[in-house]
Design a binder for these strands. Structure first.
Lengths: 214, 214
DNA sequence: TAGTTTGGAGAATATCATTCTCGGGAGTGG
DNA sequence: CCACTCCCGAGAATGATATTCTCCAAACTA
């Protein structure tokens, strides 16, 4: 979220003048669209906005929009990636408070789960929503969007392996992939709705850590 | 998949005549739409069809369609539920070949995983595709669609628990929910695309069964 | 047979995403 | 200072779909 419309107009113009190159202005415009979309999502508490809404809110034009993005899906992808990067950073920060690899991983799992849940106070809002949509429509691009999170989990798992804490036959990358997928989708409403009590982060961790067989 | 258009016309009319009540005919019409949609999905190998296409193929009318279904999403839901029921049956049948509860569960997990994968020879076709869409748009209704599968897994897990094979603190229902979610979404392309080798059913089972911690 | 229900055909509408067309303003070279 | 050009806003046009509506005939009921 950049400063956006709160800044005094002269300042904006000054910035505009100083950062003159086309590329930079393009970047600024992209960001404006992203911010606009963010705002709308937060306000409506839902991820289904129209391109028009975004354009209006952004104070830019439809034409601009389609100059910056190949289509709506690219905006979604960008939003998703932004969200993932933020989440990764937050999770990484949280893991730094632990020193045991297992504990680090536990923190990561539980936090990821909480961040993916249909949020009570829509902060980084329901981002799994379009996550799932994009998962189907643009799986390839999703790979790169996920990559920072994927990297983080792989790293944590490697650390665990080096500390002899990982099952012998387990490959960090492959486990990371399975774990992330599981956590993010267990966080989805449906599954919870079948049960009297929603599934807790603790439970998810137990599931990932120890599986189910005695 | 009912007999549908392959049946000789006279037979259909005979049936039509004998099963006269409005309710029954409505049911038949619903089925026609479902079959039509199925066919299209199989043919195109993709799940994005238009209502028009379905209507044309069904030889019924648009009006009829909207009399039977509240909207496209209800058709999707119905298709999804049909698919889930079929899958459940298939899985249940497969588990009956095993006698150890663990083995039964293993078979169930692996088969579910395979059935949810972006199919090579689109039989019960890519049903996770709209599964994920609906998961977001109509989570409540999805509950009932899932229920047969959920029931099956719960049952298998209860059996495992009774044989002392389940972790002590694990509740069959809650585990069933987490497992299903995990398996079905690990089967989604994205995760696999990050890795050199796709994830195998065996790996998924290991993950669910034993978790990751040594 | 007259009335009622059912359902077909397909036109009309609504909602979006995406593309297109125009015109004005800002910078640039002469 | 004057064209000239490029960037971009405004918003109309297009296209694809879902959904609704209107008209009408066939089937069924009493």
């Amino acid at each position: 979220m950049t400063a956006g419309t709160e800044e005094p107009a002269w300042k904006q113009r000054a910035v505009e003048r100083s950062l003159r190159t086309a590329k930079e202005r393009a970047g600024q415009r992209v960001q404006k669209f992203l911010d606009a979309a963010q705002e709308i999502i937060v306000e409506k508490g839902s991820t289904d906005f129209t391109v028009q809404e975004v354009v209006e809110r952004s104070k830019l034009s439809l034409r601009s929009f389609y100059l910056q993005f190949d289509g709506k899906h690219e905006l979604l992808l960008a939003l998703f990636e932004e969200a993932v990067v933020r989440m990764s950073a937050q999770i990484r920060a949280a893991t730094d408070n632990e020193d045991q690899p297992v504990e680090q991983l536990k923190v990561a799992v539980e936090l990821l789960y909480e961040l993916c849940q249909p949020d009570p106070v829509a902060r980084r809002p329901l981002f799994t929503e379009f996550g799932t949509q994009l998962l189907i429509s643009h799986p390839i691009e999703m790979r790169t969007a996920y990559s920072s999170l994927f990297g983080l989990f792989t790293e944590l798992l490697e650390r665990l392996r080096d500390a002899q804490g990982l099952r012998d036959d387990a490959d960090p990358q492959r486990i990371a992939s399975m774990m992330m997928q599981s956590i993010m989708f267990i966080a989805q409403p449906t599954s919870a709705d079948m049960l009297p009590e929603p599934i807790s982060a603790e439970e998810v961790w137990e599931f990932c850590a120890h599986g189910i067989v005695r």
